[in-house]
């Protein structure tokens, strides 16, 4: 397993409030990792830092074996490196069709002139078909995304991540608001994705995390509290205190 992402000693302060406090995490490739933690533990801010939305006050974030720093890059540059992000609320382009949504995400050149002159090739059409198959939306390709159900939108968004051919997927609460069978499907999707790339899942739901069967990192007050298998961290006294105690 190669090292893909290394976050070390990162801190962020908002108006005196320390959202992230000397946080260090390493992600390898391929790997499936779950990040859990109570509200305000800094899970979303952690993702914001990796994707370039928030700049940390101190610390380093490096990428790949060459150790490129992500801190000086813009959101779009980071995304082009192969880091895909799925938001907590499904954010697909509701006014556009499923096919258009996937087409937008498809790994291609991103410059305005390239995009202006872009015509969809057969290979791209085939790739969109494949992904639609995988996320179970083959029949919905021509429908506007706004007409999909909540779960379908979540899958479409995961599909858009897959279309980017990412090396690292950051997935924020993918199972929120899903029916049990939809969850099943989502778990499968993520596990399959983790065969080729690194997937980091931020989740509240312990049951969902258990099914992912992966290494778990527990965040608390902006720092790593415990790390290991789910059964390992649930036996950790600190974790029990944070989740159940007080």
């Amino acid at each position: 397993m190669k090292r893909l992402l290394e976050v070390s000693g990162v801190s962020v302060t908002f108006d005196g409030f320390r959202a992230i406090n000397n946080l260090s995490i390493q992600i390898g490739q391929p790997e499936l990792r779950a990040v859990i933690g109570p509200n305000g533990a800094g899970k979303t801010t952690f993702m914001d830092i990796i994707t370039g939305k928030t700049r940390p006050d101190s610390g380093t974030v490096t990428w790949g074996e060459k150790g490129v720093s992500l801190l000086a890059m813009s959101e779009s540059q980071i995304a082009r490196l192969g880091i895909g992000r799925k938001f907590q609320k499904p954010t697909v382009f509701e006014a556009q069709t499923v096919s258009e949504n996937l087409g937008l995400a498809l790994k291609n050149r991103r410059g305005p002139l390239d995009v202006l002159m872009y015509r969809r090739s057969r290979r791209d059409t085939a790739r969109i078909g494949e992904i639609a198959e995988e996320i179970g939306l083959s029949a919905q390709l021509a429908r506007p995304a706004g007409q999909l159900s909540h779960g379908q939108k979540q899958w479409l968004e995961i599909g858009m991540l897959l279309a980017q051919d990412p090396q690292l997927l950051l997935v924020d609460e993918p199972a929120a608001g899903m029916t049990p069978s939809e969850r099943e499907h989502t778990t499968d999707l993520l596990r399959r994705a983790a065969e080729t790339c690194a997937v980091v899942v931020v989740e509240h739901d312990m049951e969902f995390v258990r099914r992912l069967e992966c290494k778990v990192t527990v965040l608390h007050e902006g720092a790593v509290l415990a790390e290991g298998s789910l059964s390992h961290v649930t036996r950790n006294q600190d974790v029990i205190d944070v989740y159940l105690g007080r």
Binding site: S76, A79, G103, L104, M160
Partner: peptide, 26 residues
Amino acid sequence: GKMGSVVRGIRDNEARVRFLGYHVES
């Protein structure tokens, strides 16, 4: 075409387009 798709995407959710790797400002 795709340009229209990106541009309308920016109108509806600029941040999402950015996280797809498009340099929205350009």
